[in-house]
Write a protein that binds this DNA or RNA. Structure first.
Lengths: 211, 211
DNA sequence: TCTGAACGTGCACGACGTGCATGGATGCAC
DNA sequence: GTGCATCCATGCACGTCGTGCACGTTCAGA
């Protein structure tokens, strides 16, 4: 974790590995768009990235992991942006701003990318791996929250907030992608709403006693 | 969904299917405890339940699904208990009470069961399927919440509350299972705490500006 | 008792994921 | 630039997974 030694990303080896990984990520989206998520095989992925099938498994432990790799990259970027927010911001505000930055600057650049993500998110066979992506970032986010709110370190709050906030953001993204004609503005609106609800408290009284 | 026709659960066929399914659920836990989660094969599962390998796939679509089937049953029971709570109870209160009932009356009966669940929850290779179990119940819970709080129907609230509350409960269960010596009382305490935090709002101001 | 549908099963096959051995590319110290 | 230690890509073999298909059996209802 320390920054000792030669800076990461230098060296031919590291660069080649990063490039191969990125090529596989993009190949996965391309092939999913072309043939459908279910019909993408490891053989095709390897061929598209021009590596051996055996080598594919040096980069991803399963076909599904490659298909959700772009989501994983986005989730990691979210945590990084969150850590970069001014420490005075409240937790949920920082998360909201971080999400907006990732969406603006990030992988959701073109309509083409959005379309590809739609495929990934809607594929039922990918749901387990897709959820695992967010769960993996829960731990990292919980650690970051514990740093931001020192008073809460050691309590359940960091883990709880990380898990629920990520879940809420997943929900917003899912619903937004479900709506073919949804605008960028509507995404921001939903995000604001959801974060406000989390901040204000989720409980609600029941309905009429005799419905 | 309607109750027309012969009542479900009657008939030799239905009973046999239910029994086979239950046998597979239990076989999965037994074999996981005996050989470790990773080493349980479909062949073993089928043999233990005395059915053909091919037939196994008529009941579960994957080896992993069988291993988390007990969790799935618990989650379904939770939704059913939630629906049975008095309508005047607030959403989070009803969820908390429902969870306590499931834990009391349900599959967490013996220490043996708890030990088996620990194995399932801790197995990294099962995490995607495990998360999918809860996600599958999110939709059902969201529908139930929309019924309980008619005013919120049509808004994001039902889905948001269902997703975050289930996530929070998953978190509590995970942490409780992680602690070998945790008591039933401590589980209840954590559950109360978490629900209270969700009710009160999750936001927190940041720490000192210059940490 | 008869009949259609649902179910269990065996078989074949493509795809997945891993351990192992090997050769080549890379980084590093001298 | 030379030699060495290491990492990495690759091919191969193998066990496991999951599915389509065809066939025989069992069950529910008339």
């Amino acid at each position: 974790m320390s920054e000792a030694g030669p800076p990461a990303g230098t060296g031919r080896r590291e660069r080649k590995k990063l490039a191969t990984r990125a090529a596989l990520r993009e190949a996965a989206l391309r092939l999913a768009a072309r043939h459908g998520v279910e019909r993408v095989t490891v053989e095709q992925l390897a061929a598209e990235a021009d590596i051996a099938v055996r080598t594919f498994f040096n980069y991803f432990s399963s076909r599904e992991e490659a298909l959700v790799a772009t989501l994983a990259a986005g989730a990691e970027a979210l945590i990084a942006e969150f850590r970069a927010r001014p420490p005075a911001e409240s937790v949920l505000t920082a998360l909201r701003e971080a999400a907006l930055r990732v969406l603006r600057a990030g992988d959701l650049a073109g309509e083409e990318q959005v379309q590809a993500l739609r495929l990934i998110v809607r594929a039922p066979s990918l749901e387990p791996q897709r959820l695992a992506v967010f769960a993996a970032q829960e731990r990292a986010l919980a650690a970051a929250i514990a740093e931001r709110v020192p008073a809460a370190a050691g309590t359940l709050y960091p883990a709880l907030c990380a898990a629920t906030a990520l879940t809420a953001m997943r929900l917003v993204l899912d619903e937004w992608l479900d709506d073919a004609a949804a605008s960028r503005a509507s995404l921001r609106k939903s995000l604001d709403e959801v974060m406000a609800e989390l901040a204000a408290g989720l409980d609600r009284p029941g309905g009429p006693v005799d419905p």
